[in-house]
Design a protein around this nucleic acid. Sequence first.
DNA 1: TCATTATATAATAGAATGGGTATATAATGT
DNA 2: ACATTATATACCCATTCTATTATATAATGA
Lengths: 126, 126
Amino acid sequence: MTPNSLSPSDDLSAVFAALADPQRRRILAALCDQPMPVGALVDRLAPLSQPGVTRHLGVLERAGLIRREAQGRQRICQLEHMGFAAVDGWLAEHRAFWAGALDRLAAMAERGQPNHPDAPEGAPDD
Amino acid sequence: MTPNSLSPSDDLSAVFAALADPQRRRILAALCDQPMPVGALVDRLAPLSQPGVTRHLGVLERAGLIRREAQGRQRICQLEHMGFAAVDGWLAEHRAFWAGALDRLAAMAERGQPNHPDAPEGAPDD
DNA sequence: TCATTATATAATAGAATGGGTATATAATGT
DNA sequence: ACATTATATACCCATTCTATTATATAATGA
């Protein structure tokens, strides 16, 4: 019932830390358009340097938010679902608490579907 | 279509940065049980020091994840929906991209409801 | 008023982060 | 083999984070 996660580099921390940087979110947004090699991301993120982009890609990859595949001398970057699923899971664990019933109804009306109508009632683990 | 957010301290960055720390996520999980004063959180997060907890509370409050209300000499902390909504919104913007149709169907089956069936198709702004 | 309780702030140390330039490695084409 | 292209790594600097101890402020009760 009470949280116990203490390690500062667990999966969830790595994902949220990766998402906390606007440049890295720009990378993810770019990859929403389509997978692309590092160089294309360097162009889009100018004037950020190429080593800067590469380092951000490492952070995103370790967080499970992207994947890099060697293809010739390029490395094609694309979104990887694990990191996103981690955020989605954490949010789902808290959804029953952060919004009251009225808020959930409002969101439901606005988005045309219910939010976790069968969510469990215990406090999340983390 | 292409992202443009550069300020390192925009709302979303503050929320994700706040969530990147396990101690702060423990605070949120504790507040899922019920609102409580700072001292109760200090007890739960032991051996973290009281000033340490207070600083984490400041980070969470600035991120819109909690609210503090003075009540006598205590300050009652409770979850605040804005920060959670920010995460939910960001995730919704990306949901169409990070999981393929099959994954979304699986999640739908598991959670008993569709995931944003009417999500727009353009790349998110950030 | 005075002591106590609850929380916040100041001062500081150490680790992590983000950025740059320079350089190394790897793959390709001539 | 050699030059070129694509990406990664090394190194350095400045800033930001987390945590601690010591101290200050605010509210309560005797």
